[in-house]
Design a binder for these strands. Sequence first.
DNA 1: ACAATGTGTTTTAACCTTTAATTAAAAATG
DNA 2: CATTTTTAATTAAAGGTTAAAACACATTGT
Lengths: 334, 334
Amino acid sequence: MATIKDVAKHAGVSTSTVSHVLNKTRYVSEEITARVKKAVEELQYAPSALARSLKLKHTRTFGMLVTTSTNPFFAEVVKGVERRCYEQGYNLLLCNTEGDLERLRFNIDMLLQKRVDGLLLMSDEIVSQNLDIFARHKAVPTVVMDCGKTHFPADKIQDNSYLGGYLATQYLIEKGHRQIGCITGPLNKPTAEKRLAGYKQALLDAGLIINEDWLADGDFECEGGQQAFENILSRGTLPSALFVCNDMMALGVINSAGKHGISIPDDLSIIGYDDIKIARFFTPSLTTIHQPKFNLGRKAFDTLLDKIQSKRENDLEIKLEPTLVERDSVKPMD
Amino acid sequence: MATIKDVAKHAGVSTSTVSHVLNKTRYVSEEITARVKKAVEELQYAPSALARSLKLKHTRTFGMLVTTSTNPFFAEVVKGVERRCYEQGYNLLLCNTEGDLERLRFNIDMLLQKRVDGLLLMSDEIVSQNLDIFARHKAVPTVVMDCGKTHFPADKIQDNSYLGGYLATQYLIEKGHRQIGCITGPLNKPTAEKRLAGYKQALLDAGLIINEDWLADGDFECEGGQQAFENILSRGTLPSALFVCNDMMALGVINSAGKHGISIPDDLSIIGYDDIKIARFFTPSLTTIHQPKFNLGRKAFDTLLDKIQSKRENDLEIKLEPTLVERDSVKPMD
DNA sequence: ACAATGTGTTTTAACCTTTAATTAAAAATG
DNA sequence: CATTTTTAATTAAAGGTTAAAACACATTGT
């Protein structure tokens, strides 16, 4: 591996000059520039980002923590930030926590030792967790991408799950439904809790009662949706519509309903949440609350970059609004 | 940010001693060890992986390139390698190519400048591409995770798509189907091509004819599956069964079939490929060819790690065999 | 003619580690 | 007790880069 020294020697100049022509960081005469470039070419020189970062005190690398990158929702957000990384010449170190707090700590520690320039946190476990880990390191610009408080300073991108929950339920009511159940996420997660709150408020505002028999909590995965649905099913009569708090669980309940001969939307209307890419390809196409996932990823990246470039001190709180997307899984009641 | 020097000064020892107690790389007396540890604690010292890597000439970081990490198949494989990374104390730099060759080159260059210890390539674009980029850098251990030849040395993990295609088609035949169509992936991709070849051979072996009307190619995404299906539909009579070359496209055709009032599996049997996690939650549950995705990711990581640790020179070729998983999307013909 | 200014390049220190070589002190040996 | 061996620590170089400071030389103004 050729180093900058080799190039310098080969071109008969100093390393400093080589550095300057490579980085265009000050004028170097035509002739020498040419000589250096030729040497670079001949030696197949590729600079060491390691040495560069050591000196420059930045790595052009962000670290990102997610609960599970296989979850389509997370996957789409991650892709949004990754795309932006590419556009801005950054790299992304991706870590899954899989709900393991130890893994979370370990990963953060590792990322900080690797001196990432910023941290993107989309892992519910963090919230309410007092991360001593952060104390060990210089404060790194951080953006956290779920609601809930943190014990450390960070920008926050909020998805307004409360509004989403309200919107979904309101839509069902508009369509004439009066018996509306809800399959929530794990209620210790702020997003899940807020969607439920939105649901309840919408019901309340419409003067409808909340039937506990039609409430069940899942795990934001297909399995959990299925189980929650079976749960509700086992308790007797079904509602006419169900607000399922994310699309993955909705997939689970559609599948489960099918097995019980319950037709969606004829026997039961369903509205989901997230609008993951495959939602429109469910059978029936899923009516759902759209989350601007790509934008969320983009915004998170941009906020981080801005914090670094502008040396902004205060912490931002950015709200992204959900919208309803109407497809075929909700039947109007007459 | 405290450095090792600060710790040394604070503990009244040399940096070298601090390094030794931190890395347990040689005996240091009880007393001094304690003093150093105390200093580390008090100064909240966290070593710089950057400086460390510069000296040690390894980064404990792998780079991974995929076409799109949102595709569940890729996502699951990525997660497999990421899990293994965590277990072995590595980090993963994830890059999407999104089919863009320029982006591929740029990313590889970046990863190599960052001095990743190894490269995992799961991006079809590479194949048949003569990547001059590699010449600029020291040969980095690489494993490529799709079939097809490469112009550079690398370990290969192969998924035996030919066998998978054969298995799928054979299964349909066993179930009594005689009119069997196929929706392929983009035929310039080796995996797509091989699955088709397996399909054809199975048909041939059973003495069945290949009806071109029942063949269409998609893009390995939902949309492509839909279009391909509409395509076949528009050509007249449907076959009784369809081998759809990945699960995402299968989702698309199930959705499309639903819209045309075609019932799966009563009117049309479908078998998919990949066995992505959500396949069992399709309606009906998708019969499909299981790919050991997690194992693929794991194997890829392990092969890379082994190459590095054992300094193996030759290139391995590892075959992972697909298996059939029977669910509800194929109806036996009587 | 000579100081002042400007230009293009080099020297050198710094970034933070690890580790081979070295030293100093203690322990063992004859 | 003098000498060798062992042990435990330190010194200093190396890893590959950047950039401030220094330098050498040419140009300009008076």
